[in-house]
Amino acid sequence: MSTETIEKEPASKVELAPGVGGGGEIPTFDITLKVRRYNPEVSDEAHWDEWQLTMYGTDRVLDALHKVKWEHDGSVSFRRSCAHGVCGSDAMRINGRNRLACKTLLKDLDTSKPILVEPIKGLPVEKDLIVDMEPFFQSYREIMPFLVSKGHEPSKERLQSAEERERYDDTTKCILCAACTSSCPVFWTDGQYFGPAAIVNAHRFIFDSRDDAGDMRLEILNDKEGVWRCRTTFNCSEACPRGIQVTKAISEVKQAILTRKI
């Protein structure tokens, strides 16, 4: 049996003097996070809760919410899934603007004032930051967000030129987070309006050369609550975390309806 002691590999190959954070040290700062709380089982009134947190420069609003939920108050409720801006679960009203909590860096907000986090407006709040998305998805379903094709199914893939694909490229980016629809003042009024998200997703199929149900979708959106309720306030374009030109898409649908009718 060998008595030779195996020399342990050091934890770090770089020797650092104690107390030195190294090149990768991330600055920290203190923030005040104010969250709009609502729990129908306790009270019909919503109220604000406030926490003082020490956060890192790389943290997002979602990290602050996680810190609160995991370390301070486990009853804080919010939706999030992928946490990387793709699933569209965590749209919320941060400092009065609709954004994804997972795409909003704390350092980009004014940390000298409390950071206000509210549920998105216009949809019924279920608890804290969770809203009932069913009306939103109902409008989405109504515009038939799927490929409708006449004739025989081709034996190979449905071909499309790069230009034809480019025509609706912008509106394919939608992640259905509802940031646009819940930032729309027309939607806030009575919730009857189809909303920007439904129109964007209709646009995605209306201008798809492989799709044959464009006329049906245009007819659906030629409703009293359809595209004509858009007042071009651009709130949706500003809110979209994917940078979709929502108002432009809506006006293209308006024009398509007009040219079809006249």
């Binding site: 069913e134 009306p135 030629n222 009293k224 359809g226 004509w228």
Partner: peptide
């Protein structure tokens, strides 16, 4: 599958009036 009653649209609101008004 339920949609809050305030949000369900009344059907039969089609027609071109809103389009003509917009134009």
């Amino acid at each position: 599958g339920r949609v809050s009653p305030g949000y369900s649209r009344t059907p039969g609101s089609r027609g071109n009036f809103e389009m003509i008004a917009w134009l």
